[in-house]
Amino acid sequence: MPENDNSELICVGVIAGAFGVRGEVRLKSFCAQPEDIETYSPLTTENGNQSFTVTINRPINTGFAAILSGVKTKEDADALRGTRLFAPRDRLPSLPDDEFYHADLIGLTVIDTGGETLGKVIMVQNHGAGDLLEIKPENGGETVLLPFTLANVPTVDLGAGRIVADPPEGLFQGKP
């Protein structure tokens, strides 16, 4: 699912409520390495109205017990329950060639080698056999899973917002 309409912000976690009675929050991280959420701080809310510096105290059952700047009491923490936390895209470290953030791939237009539009990337999945791009075909219908390999996806152009795909035969309905 696309993370947010504002492509500059990436959802990295959510406040699940208060933890204890001393103003700590229960923080759920969506990062690949959960504790990395601290390195992306300060984090903002979806509309950017509030900003928090995150300090992780310890891991707990469903995430982390953390202290957020400006949150002093349990009541403050409870009021933030369900608040999603966002980090600016440019705060994520740069990656080597042929490695991409899911957030960058989601939303890209997929075209075939002939220049015809196949659809849009809506999700990146990995079930243990390599990364798969889930593509919603332009003409509607069921989504298609395309292996994210050099053979199938020779070009990823993030600047132009498109992927050039050479899908295996019969993967896209109606395509040879």
Partner: peptide, 27 residues
């Protein structure tokens, strides 16, 4: 993957998590 079953790589339930800072590598 040799010795595993095909079904292990094709889950029957899909969990749509958050992208956050997850990475995909093109091999």
């Amino acid at each position: 993957m040799i010795g595993q079953k095909f079904g292990e790589y094709s889950p029957t339930r899909t969990y749509y998590g958050h992208a956050a800072d997850k990475k995909a590598k093109r091999k």
